[in-house]
Computed example of a mutant assay.
Amino acid sequence: VHPRQPYGGQLVFAAFSGSHQDAIAKGMKYREDKHMHRWMVPYLPIDPHDVGREYDADVIRINSQSGKGGIAYILEQNYGFHIPVKMREEIGYMVKGVSDHSHKELSPAEVYETFKNEYINKFNPIDITDATFRKNSTYKGEDGYTVDIHVNIAGTEYFFTASGNGRLDAVSNALRQSKLYSFDYTFVTYAEHALEAESNSRAAAYVAIADANGKVYWGVGMHEDIILASINALVSAINRLNQVSHFITK
Rank of each mutant, 00 (worst) to 15 (best):
H103N: 07
E105I: 09
L106P: 12
S107M: 09
A109G: 05
E110G: 04
V111Y: 01
V111I: 07
Y112Q: 03
E113A: 06
T114H: 10
F115W: 10
E118G: 05
E118P: 01
Y119L: 15
K122A: 13
F123Y: 14
N124H: 15
N124P: 13
P125S: 03
I126K: 13
I126A: 09
I126C: 12
D127M: 06
D127F: 12
I128T: 01
A131F: 03
T132S: 09
K135P: 15
K135H: 15
N136M: 11
T138P: 05
Y139S: 06
K140E: 05
K140S: 06
K140G: 01
G141A: 05
E142L: 12
E142I: 15
E142C: 05
D143W: 11
G144Q: 05
Y145L: 14
Y145T: 11
H150T: 09
V151M: 07
N152V: 07
N152R: 11
I153M: 08
I153G: 02
A154T: 05
A154P: 02
A154I: 03
E157C: 14
E157T: 12
E157S: 14
F159E: 05
F159Y: 09
S163E: 15
G164A: 11
G164L: 11
G164W: 07
G164C: 09
G164H: 08
R167P: 02
L168V: 12
D169S: 01
D169Y: 00
D169W: 00
A170M: 13
L175F: 02
R176P: 06
R176G: 04
Q177S: 11
Q177K: 13
Q177M: 13
Q177C: 10
F183C: 01
F183P: 04
Y185E: 00
F187V: 04
V188Y: 00
V188L: 00
T189I: 08
E192V: 13
E192G: 07
E192Q: 14
